[in-house]
Design a protein around this nucleic acid. Structure first.
Length: 607
RNA sequence: GGGGGCGUAGCUCAGCUUGGUUAGAGCACUUGACUGUCACUCAAGAGGCCGCGGGUUCGAGCCCCGUCGCUCCCGCCA
């Protein structure tokens, strides 16, 4: 193999992947390369030794190509060497691209019209037998996830995961380009920040130079980005890593990436329009057309019609209120619920009358699991209504139900706090059973006008639904100065098919209003406000423009656009649900003297 | 913090219901044969702390208790 000519840069000639050691990538070779002498570097994906003839599938990031070793063009020693290489070893192969005869083409392979006739092979990175297979048969199951994470250096070689990370890269680039072109500055914020006792648990980092004091890893760059606005940076974004020390889920990691955006002199509609353009650009990069603007729905509407603040609009089964029609009924379940301040609401399921008692019992179990006392069922079969309530129904109630032949009504009689989540669960399950969820459809939606505060039903304490820096509708504050639980927030969530993609708000830019919000949230002491949020309040007092922003969950977006179901498949080195990194084996114990330097002592018994 | 599922060869799994000779299969691996394969084929071989600890029993992969790991869900995630 000849050395590159001194001074020659192979990164020219229109093939940016050529280097001093290789000329092409395996997966890039096509019929047009026929006759070209090439040097390839790649991993041995699989090989087939026919005795005297060896075929090797060589893999790199671009894909697979077949290399053939044959006495007609390969020396005996070259064939012997090829036959001896183990899978997943790294080799450099020199040869000539040749078109394959028609009957030997492989239509399943992008490079299947050609093969590389090898004249030399050099093993530059021999591999031990892989602990988990990289090359898989069509019907082979994936190894267990803990093994895939433990041997991530092998799992990430799989073309599927490579494609996911390549797509992730492209989505990052298009996001940066979109925002950059619109004057947004990519500004970095600290990873070592100030602990905030609200919200999720912080990851804490002990300070060595300040005994007993701690940094926290950011749950989001929220306050910093608002300070950028106070500084006049006007338009900010960051692909920001965020950390939350909470228990995990399939779609939740302890560290995650969000597209974080903030802008000045804007209102809600500005942020929404910008976001729609960005989301459309991201989806387009993944090959999907998205029409804008997105639908909008108020929080109150979403809860009333779907029992959920991020409704999946790909199907109907909307919730209806039958309270007025059921109020006169002499039926204890509905009567007591209504008398107690509740309502009778539910959905009509076309064709549900055919479901068995057991099937409907399963739906009731779901409703009960969500907190409901039960699920009332009324079906219309052979022209008459049937169910425990049926004999109590007045003509008015029957008319209100408006059931068609074969319909099933599923009702919950309870306060909204109970019936919303119960009906949400039942509605989703019914849609799934009916098979009416179109998985090709993309129903983007803005949910707006969230309440500012959530009131604890027992203590009466208020907590922020979005976060404490969100602005409220000015007219609500004026109309109900003493009933903050009635205020609507200038907050908005971007929802796709029942999944939350992102959320944001217009912020409170008046420091006096911000201080009042803290007071409403139970931080009435001014000194306490200054201690915890002084660095924001000072910034606001120094002259703050009206501003607002939004953050999108980038991992989840990558997952959706990779058609995956697990965040772990779009993150190179993810944690397990126990927040453990199996490959590098973190977290881990550290020597007591290291702790001592940080002024810490473990309370856990040494093993 | 709570509940469910899983844990047997390097990998994917069977065996457990009803305890009983030497724990099996496919793939991978090793050796051999094979000149157009592409999940090559064929033959032979090697490979096991049945997660770990304890208990019941004449006898435990199988039953019981505990524990660890992974996973899914609830709580939690302003």
């Amino acid at each position: 193999m000849g050395a590159a000519a001194p001074g020659a840069s192979p990164l020219t000639e229109g093939n940016v992947f050529a280097t001093s050691q290789r000329t092409h990538r395996c997966g890039d070779l096509r019929a047009l390369h026929a006759g070209t002498s090439v040097i390839l570097g790649g991993w041995v994906h699989r090989s087939r030794d026919l005795g005297g003839l060896v075929f090797m599938d060589l893999r790199d990031r671009a894909g697979l190509v077949q290399v053939s070793f044959n006495p007609d063009w390969s020396a005996a020693q070259v064939i012997a060497d090829a036959a001896a290489v183990g899978v997943e070893s790294v080799v450099l192969v020199e040869g000539v691209v040749q078109p394959r005869p028609d009957e030997m083409r492989n239509p399943d392979l992008a490079t299947g019209d050609v093969e590389v006739r090898a004249t030399s092979i050099r093993v530059v990175g021999p591999a031990v037998t892989p602990a988990i297979p990289v090359a898989r048969g069509k019907n082979d199951k994936l190894p267990a996830e803990d093994l895939r994470l433990r041997h991530r250096y092998l799992d990430l070689r799989r073309p599927e995961l490579q494609a996911n990370l390549v797509l992730r890269h492209r989505l990052l680039q298009i996001t940066r380009q979109f925002l950059s072109e619109r004057g947004f500055l990519e500004l970095e914020t600290p990873i070592l920040t100030k602990p905030t006792p609200e919200g999720a648990r912080d990851y804490l980092v002990p300070s060595r130079v300040h005994p007993g004091e701690f940094y926290a890893l950011p749950q989001s760059p929220q306050i910093y980005k608002q300070l950028f606005m106070c500084c006049g940076f006007d338009r900010y974004f960051q692909i920001a890593r965020c950390f939350r020390d909470e228990d995990l889920r399939q779609d939740r990691q302890p560290e995650f990436t969000q597209i974080d955006i903030e802008a000045s002199f804007i209102g809600r509609d500005d942020i929404m329009a910008l976001s729609e353009g960005m989301v459309a650009a991201i989806w387009r990069e993944a090959g999907h057309d998205v029409s804008t603007p997105f639908e909008r729905m108020s929080y109150a509407d979403a809860m009333e019609r779907y029992g959920c603040d991020r409704p999946d609009l790909r199907y109907g089964l909307e919730i209806h209120d039958f309270t007025a029609a059921f109020a006169p009924l002499d039926f204890v379940v509905t009567k007591s619920a209504i008398d107690g301040g509740g309502r009778v609401r539910g959905i009509r399921v076309p064709g549900g009358a055919a479901w068995s008692r057991k099937q409907v019992d399963e739906l009731e179990a779901l409703a009960k699991g969500a907190g409901a006392g039960g699920l009332l069922r009324i079906k219309k079969a052979e022209g008459k209504l049937d169910g425990p309530v049926a004999k109590f129904l007045t003509p008015d109630a029957e008319a209100a139900l408006a059931l068609n032949e074969g319909d099933l009504a599923l009702l919950v009689a309870a306060k909204d706090r109970v019936s919303h989540p119960a009906l949400d669960r039942v509605r989703q399950e019914c849609a799934r059973r009916l098979g009416i969820v179109d998985d090709q459809a993309r129903r983007f939606l803005w949910v707006t006008d969230f309440p500012m505060f959530d009131k604890d039903p027992e203590t009466g304490a208020l907590s922020a639904v979005h976060h404490p820096f969100t602005a409220a509708h000015a007219d609500d504050m004026a109309a109900y100065p003493d009933a903050p639980e009635r205020w609507r927030a200038l907050a908005y969530d971007c929802v796709l098919n029942g999944l939350e993609l992102g959320g944001g708000s217009v912020r409170t830019s008046d420091p006096r209003v911000q201080s009042r919000m803290f007071t409403l949230l139970g931080i009435g002491d001014v000194a306490e406000q200054e201690r915890r949020f002084g660095f924001l309040l000072e910034g606001l007092r120094a002259g703050a423009p009206p501003h607002g922003g939004i953050a999108f969950g980038f991992d989840r977006i990558s997952m959706l656009l990779s058609n995956g179901t697990s965040l772990r498949d779009v993150i190179a080195f993810p944690k397990t649900t126990a927040a453990r990194a199996l490959f590098e084996d973190a977290p881990t114990t550290v020597p007591a003297e290291d702790l001592g330097e940080l002024h810490l002592r473990s309370t856990v018994e040494a093993k």
